[in-house]
Amino acid sequence: MHRKKVKKSKKITFIVLCIWAIIQIFPLYWMLTFSLKDNSEIFGENIIGLPKKWLWSNYQVALTTGNMARYFLNSTIVTVGTIFLTTIAALMATYALKRMVWRGQETANNIFMLGLTVPIHAAILPVFIMLRNLKMTNSYQALILPYSAFALAMAILISNSFIDNIPRELEEAACIDGCSIYGIFWHIILPLMKPALSTIGIFIFLQAWNELMFAVIFISDSTYRTLSVGIQTLSGSYTTSWGPIGAALVIATFPTLFLYSFMSQKIQESLVIGAVKG
């Protein structure tokens, strides 16, 4: 009797979870299907079904006349640049903060950690003015530098927690062998910090790839537009034909979902680490 009740409640839970899964995933399914349809299907004949005629030309339109290929490249450059700069800066700082010995290292670490709580609103206008004065708006640096600065706190936090697991004996041994401090960092610490790199990389990728506010304001020239701004422009000029926009949305989402399908567990872990430690 009792067991029956438990079984029944499990069944109901399962059904509710399925419904919620549909709610979460349906818009994406819809995006995928209408990216392959023409207007007559999207607007009435076949609103939610699979496309009758698979219209791959939508993708061609989005990539060429819609300029999505360019925006995709720009987003890639900005994201890779940000990951590279942030990771290097964070690993170097972590080494100095956690392993080397100097006065004020605790305070310095705490100040970096304050960066976790500062919203980008605090910086947007001053940074815009700085970039304008340096004639640097409409460039890749205009996004890479601010993204890196705001990702830094999280990157240091993550690498701090990883460096604690590296035994000091290795450094001591290298030191006795006559290795310089730079050699220790380069040959011993960096290779051992590899597990931290993927966590940091995932974190920064999601931030930089998806960021909108800085990108909208610092970039007006289409040559440097990232995907988030590019899609906004595109949807402004293709208000009446939805197919190419759907294709653009799929193109922008593809790398994220591609990564996620291979390493969903790792991605979930990275985001949990970041949130709970911060």
């Binding site: 170097m92 700082a93 970096f112 960066g115 500062v118 910086a123 890196s148 705001f150 830094l152």
Partner: peptide
């Protein structure tokens, strides 16, 4: 080791606040 992170942090977060 501290320079790149500190520079980024001060120039883009510290001073702008």
């Amino acid at each position: 080791f501290m320079f790149p992170a500190t520079f980024l942090f001060i120039a883009i977060i510290g001073v702008p606040i």
